[in-house]
Amino acid sequence: MTARMDKRFADLKAEGRPALITYMMGGDPDFQTSLGIMKALPGAGADVIELGMPFSDPMADGPAIQLAGQRALANGQTLAKTLDLAREFRKHDQDTPIVLMGYYNPIYNMGVETFLDAALDAGIDGLIVVDLPPEMDDELCIPAVAKGVNFIRLATPTTDEKRLPTVLRNTSGFVYYVSMNGITGSALPDPSLVGAAVQRIKAHTELPVCVGFGVKTADHARAIGAAADGVVVGSAIVSQVAGSLTVDGKATDHTISAVTTLVSGLATGVRSARLVAAE
């Protein structure tokens, strides 16, 4: 399973451009629509899909992703159904890596072994679990890596030189550099500072370093993409979903196109960024 992720980054490196990593909330606003969004993402230019697992208490997320999770839960989304989304998607696409992103409790509730087996079966390539720092690696990271599921860690501006080796230990797939202290959906940071931070991390690891938090437009994607191996876009995408819904929160016939229009623009930005950071 790790192979799909490694191959994708190797291919992009050969192409000389950064990855576009798109976050979507599983089950937002409903199962079928989010499956439609997921299937449309690779065609719109997404290289990796981060699939959000909704949680009632998303402590590191801003309003856009909080609301997306609430919409999904209100429509009956569960962790099992989020895995079903991936399983359905895999019937049509065997190449695009899928990374599940969310919080630990629904996983712990399902049982770590049960979850990992189900995730592998559904074609999941990696996990980002926000509330599992390296100090908690025994919980999920080590069992996941043992089964061949990447465990992707977040590095932040508070992750100093002393702490970086701890954060990078046991991590695989790529490193997700959160470009600012704060919650998802905040303002874009200065790209030159981001570039320096990416270089600092790359001095410690061979893994691709992807950058997220604050990327909303094609220009942002180009600027950040010039300094990193990948650009993560999340809140802007779920905001497109939100903006397309009826007043009572139902999907409309332009919900999927609202997402693909944004993602196509971001993809253009990413494809025009030279991959400065990679050698």
Binding site: D131, P133, M136, R153, L154, T156, P157, T158, V178
Partner: peptide, 12 residues
Amino acid sequence: GGRFVAETLMPL
């Protein structure tokens, strides 16, 4: 118990 927090908060 334990320390189930986002990486940003770990150093703090």
